[in-house]
Simulated scan of single mutants.
Amino acid sequence: MVKRTRLLLRRPKNTKALNQAPGTVTYIGRKESVETRLEVIDYNKESFDRYTSLRPEDAFNFESDDKITWINIDGLSNTEEIVKLGRYYELHPLIQEDIVNTNQRPKIDEYQDYIFLVVKMLYFPKDVTDKNNGSLISEHLSFVVGKDYVLSFQEADGDVFDNVRERLANSKGRLRSNGSDYLLFALLDAIIDQYFEVVDVIGDKIELLEESLFQSQPNDDITFEIQELKRTILRIRRAVFPLREVLSRLEKLDSDFIDEKTRNYFRDLYDHVIQVSENIEIYREMTWGLMDMYMTTISNRMNEVMKVLTIIATIFIPLTFIAGIYGMNFEYMPELQWEYSYFILWGIMLLIFLIMLYYFRKKKWL
């Protein structure tokens, strides 16, 4: 059962801190108490090293011309740590501001020495046995991609990159043999693959709601489930639709550290996002149809009830008429003096009832 309190519409927080200069690094999000944690993966074709730390200064020691460094930062509420990393990698203040602004829409910015991307990572919690009962998690994710490094900034611990880490550790595929541009592709590919799983779950939820609507007595809370589903689809739509423009621009960027072969992979990602977008639009229309279907079902049930009540009232109209006539207090009513008039009257009333009942069944009104 869906809690009704979850369906209260919350006004979104400001996308920018008020009365502050542009470039001010102010965290805007809900996960206020997440400790900043760093995961550093340093690799090339022959070697692979992995480190974790709570100090951003530990990420300053990985600069090599023959290795690619992926630094994943979990936790954005500690803005001082983000600023330290931003200063070391010479990130523009506006980029640092967007990194900690979790309401920032997906976008891409090109600078001289690096590329900045904002995307949304969508997934259902892994600890939920039945994903149909789990709430969608939408996590703000930023990438800074340079010639030999990739920085990824996440709101909190937990992501969809386990497969990428495994491929790097086991030297599977092309990851260890390519540059930072291909690592960016692998990370974006993991995010978009998860979009497909999210969309599949949404499709399963719609099918379950359709089955429930066709039951004789659908769940009374189904309207709240439909509203929750509509909100979830809207969140997915806000994350996916801007990503089409991001990937289109990424494919066409004129950058020294984006290989021509990698552009083909980015083009493939763009096709996948288009497919996800089309599925989302289809499910969005189906969700609106679910509410119409529910209202139609309720109307049909009400019509059935009204039909039965109308038939009952129609049957009792002639019986009430007869009872009303012989219930009048006139002194001279000869039928009242007959010996079997009471039983005759009951027989006539019963006969009228049976004839009308037969007629209604013949017309298939019952």
Rank of each mutant, 00 (worst) to 15 (best):
V201D: 13
Q104L: 01
L250V: 08
D74V: 02
D256K: 12
W338R: 08
T223E: 04
N264M: 10
L209R: 07
T129Q: 15
S33T: 07
D74E: 14
E228C: 01
I312L: 15
Y342M: 07
R37T: 14
G324K: 10
T79E: 03
R167G: 05
S33P: 00
R237W: 12
E39I: 11
I236A: 14
Q112K: 12
L247W: 09
G134I: 11
S33H: 11
E57N: 13
G347I: 15
I108H: 03
K172H: 08
T79L: 01
I258D: 00
N14R: 15
D127I: 00
V144K: 13
E197D: 13
E197K: 13
T314M: 15
I222V: 11
F266A: 00
Q217K: 08
I191H: 03
E39S: 02
I71D: 07
I192P: 01
L151Y: 06
M302E: 15
T287V: 14
F116K: 01
R167L: 04
Y43P: 03
T314H: 10
P12M: 08
R105N: 04
T69W: 07
T262S: 06
N264I: 10
K362Q: 05
V201W: 02
R301P: 02
K45Q: 08
E251N: 10
F214L: 07
A156P: 10
E331I: 09
W365E: 02
Q217F: 08
L243S: 06
S135R: 09
L54Y: 07
Y342H: 15
R30D: 13
I322K: 05
K131S: 05
V118A: 01
I115T: 07
E245W: 09
A186I: 04
F62C: 01
Y89W: 13
N264F: 11
Y326E: 03
D58S: 04
F60Y: 09
E211Y: 03
A17L: 15
A313W: 04
S64P: 03
T287E: 00
Q96P: 04
R165I: 15
N219A: 06
I68A: 02
L184F: 11
S77T: 07
S138G: 01
L151T: 02
V240A: 14
E228Y: 14
Y265K: 14
E81D: 14
N72P: 02
D220V: 09
R37G: 02
I71N: 07
I137S: 04
A190P: 15
E139N: 04
L9V: 09
F343C: 00
D130G: 01
T102R: 00
R55E: 09
M333A: 10
I115F: 04
Y265R: 07
F161V: 03
S33N: 14
